Simulated assay, not measured.
Amino acid sequence: MLTEFRNLVVGEVVEAVRYVVPRGESWPEGHKEDRVHEVDMAIELYMKSGAVLMLSWAMDGMSEGMAIEIKGPKDDPDSLPGDSVDVTIHVDWIRYLGLSIANIGVSWHIPNEGCPAMPWAYDFDFSDGSSLVVALGEFNNAMPKYLPDALLVFFDVVAATEYKIPANVASPCD
């Protein structure tokens, strides 16, 4: 299934980016935005083809992971209970506009005993050799920490490489 998903996404060109936040809020709403963004609900990558790639945190009982899906131009929009905030022209996102996705890597973890392996991070490589990582987590005491009910976008490779979670000793870039 991951191979099929990669085949759908690789080659897509990023045109716009939106963060989904709780209704009535904006972004960054107190979240860090210096080369690592904290996003409350979801990230939507709008592609030149009209497709939308959406990443969100997902929990099912003790299973905690990241959901990723791609919607075609004619699909119904998602019904997340939040507001979409356009971050396309944010300085950290501008460099990725017009670039195609060259590859997507996935990092897995077993969140709790008895749970299946779940994705906790996606590593996006782009056609110009740049990359970014989207992972479960949020800022706690000015440091990125694993918490499964928010997302972190790492634009800084060093910060992404240093980020580790309790259920997986590897970084999302490994």
Rank of each mutant, 00 (worst) to 15 (best):
Met1Asn: 14
Glu4Cys: 08
Phe5Gln: 05
Arg6Glu: 05
Val9Ser: 02
Val10Gln: 02
Val13Asp: 03
Val14His: 04
Glu15Tyr: 11
Val17Arg: 02
Val17Lys: 03
Val17Asp: 04
Val21Ile: 12
Pro22Ile: 09
Gly24Ala: 13
Ser26Lys: 13
Pro28Val: 03
Glu29Thr: 12
Gly30Cys: 08
His31Phe: 10
Lys32Pro: 11
Lys32Ala: 13
Glu33Lys: 09
Asp34Phe: 13
Val36Leu: 01
Met41Val: 08
Met41Ala: 07
Ala42Met: 07
Ile43Ala: 04
Leu45Val: 04
Leu45Thr: 01
Tyr46Phe: 15
Tyr46Cys: 05
Met47Asp: 05
Met47His: 07
Lys48Gly: 12
Ser49Ala: 08
Ser49Asn: 13
Gly50Ile: 01
Ala51His: 10
Val52Gly: 07
Leu55Met: 09
Leu55Cys: 04
Ser56Thr: 07
Ser56Gly: 12
Ser63Ala: 15
Met66Ile: 10
Ile68Met: 11
Glu69Leu: 15
Lys71Val: 10
Lys71Ile: 08
Gly72Val: 09
Gly72Asn: 14
Asp75Ile: 06
Asp75Gln: 14
Asp76Met: 13
Pro77Cys: 10
Pro77Ala: 14
Pro77Val: 06
Ser79Gln: 15
Leu80Cys: 10
Asp83His: 07
Ser84Thr: 10
Val85Asn: 05
Asp86Ile: 14
Asp86Val: 15
Val87Leu: 03
His90Met: 11
Val91Gly: 08
Asp92Met: 14
Ile94Phe: 10
Arg95Phe: 05
Leu97Lys: 07
Leu97Val: 06
Gly98Asp: 12
Gly98Trp: 06
Leu99His: 06
Leu99Val: 09
Ile101Met: 06
Ala102Glu: 03
Ile104Arg: 01
Val106Gly: 05
Val106His: 07
His109Trp: 03
His109Phe: 01
His109Ile: 03
His109Asn: 14
His109Ser: 12
His109Thr: 09
Ile110His: 06
Ile110Glu: 10
Pro111Gln: 02
Asn112Cys: 13
Glu113Pro: 05
Pro116Lys: 08
Pro119Asn: 10
Pro119Lys: 04
Ala121His: 02
Ala121Thr: 03
Ala121Met: 03
Tyr122Cys: 00
Asp123Phe: 00
Asp123Thr: 03
Phe126Asn: 03
Ser130Asn: 12
Val133Asn: 00
Leu136Asn: 00
Glu138Ser: 11
Asn140Thr: 13
Asn141Cys: 09
Ala142His: 13
Ala142Gly: 08
Ala142Met: 14
Ala142Glu: 15
Ala142Leu: 15
Met143Arg: 12
Met143Gly: 06
Pro144Gln: 02
Lys145Pro: 04
Tyr146Lys: 02
Ala150His: 04
Ala150Trp: 04
Ala150Tyr: 00
Ala150Phe: 04
Leu152Asn: 03
Leu152Tyr: 01
Phe155Leu: 09
Phe155Ala: 03
Asp156Tyr: 09
Ala159Asn: 10
Ala160His: 03
Thr161Arg: 09
Tyr163Gly: 00
Tyr163Ile: 00
Tyr163His: 01
Pro166Gly: 06
Pro166Lys: 07
Val169Lys: 10
Val169Arg: 12
Ala170His: 12
Ser171Cys: 06
Pro172Glu: 07
Pro172Tyr: 02
